[in-house]
């Protein structure tokens, strides 16, 4: 990995390491080294540099909440805002523990899209009514409760690299 004009440039080995870590972040340096045919110390150096420069933001566990008996409701909330207040609304939403993701959209009016999780529908409504609707600049809110998930995957570097070659 190099820094060129203040931008991070990954080398071929970095890309390969990222692909492997995306599949299973619990693999050891030795295991990754064996897969790629390089020394574990080389893997350590590359991973350490990517962590240091924020390329690898964190390692996390994907927990199946149903399996451990945690009942919850997930919803996608679109918050239409006054353009001057949009940034502040997004920041306030990002601070809430009920909000998992916050993004800005320019599709129709300026809006903030957030993924929200709550214990049940009533708690979800209370959160939106008491903590989101009163925020200055909020014009209206549309919320869709997710009833079934058909696919749930993260952005795949491997797939993106393959497609960008064509």
């Amino acid at each position: 990995m190099k820094i060129k004009n203040q931008a991070v440039v990954l080398d071929n080995l970095d890309w390969k390491i990222l692909q492997i870590l995306q599949e299973n972040a619990k693999q050891t340096y030795t295991e990754i080294g064996q897969l790629l045919g390089v020394a574990h110390s080389t893997i350590y150096d590359h991973i350490h540099k990517m962590e240091e420069h924020g390329v690898i933001k964190k390692y996390t566990a994907v927990v199946d909440l149903e399996k451990i008996g945690i009942k919850h409701v997930t919803a996608i909330m679109t918050v239409f805002t006054n353009p001057q207040e949009s940034e502040k609304v997004a920041k306030r939403l990002s601070e809430s523990k009920e909000v998992l993701e916050v993004s800005a959209s320019l599709s129709e009016n300026l809006s903030i899209i957030a993924k929200v999780v709550a214990e049940n529908q009533n708690r979800l409504h209370l959160f939106i009514a008491q903590s989101v609707a009163p925020l200055p600049g909020v014009l209206r809110i549309r919320t869709s409760i997710i009833t079934r998930k058909y696919k749930d995957e993260r952005f795949s570097i491997e797939k993106w690299k393959m497609e960008s070659k064509h």
Binding site: H125, P134, P136, L139, R140, I141, T143
Partner: peptide, 19 residues
């Protein structure tokens, strides 16, 4: 205060913009 106002929704999480 605005945090204690009544906010009108049409269903769970769907705020009309009226308060």
């Amino acid at each position: 205060p605005r945090e204690n106002a009544f906010y009108f929704f049409t269903s769970i999480g769907n705020y009309t913009g009226e308060n």
